[in-house]
């Protein structure tokens, strides 16, 4: 999913269910929209490893940010709940102290 802005809760939901939110500059978002308006079959390439998005028809592109941990989850098909369940006993110890 590509946008120049994502609200926090929506962005977290995306990351947690395996949908990659790509935040681009407002000007790049405008270029994508105008290109798609001209050519509806325009394709975008998203290279998660190198954190780069490219508009294939024009070769235009830019890099995007993603948290390193979230990137790893996305690449390996893990999610936060898998991570947290793996440390359940540490959480239980913490919970008992509160």
């Amino acid at each position: 999913m590509v946008s120049s802005f994502f609200a926090d809760i929506f962005k977290n939901n995306c990351l947690n269910i395996g949908v990659l939110p790509v935040t681009v500059s407002a000007s790049f978002a405008d270029r994508i929209l105008s290109e798609v308006a001209k050519h509806p079959d325009t394709e975008l390439e998203i290279d998660l490893q190198n954190q780069r998005i490219t508009l294939l028809s024009t070769g235009d592109g830019e890099t995007f940010d993603i948290n390193a941990y979230k990137k790893g989850n996305m690449q390996h098909g893990f999610d936060d709940i898998d991570y947290l369940l793996n440390m359940a006993s540490a959480i239980d110890t913490f919970a008992a102290s509160r």
Binding site: N12, N13, N16, Y69, I91
Partner: peptide
């Protein structure tokens, strides 16, 4: 703070969420 449904699930399952 507010969370999404994916995090509601996380809290029900583990009482934790992953937050920066």
């Amino acid at each position: 703070f507010g969370i999404g449904t994916s995090e509601v699930e996380m809290v029900l399952a583990t009482q934790c969420i992953m937050q920066s």
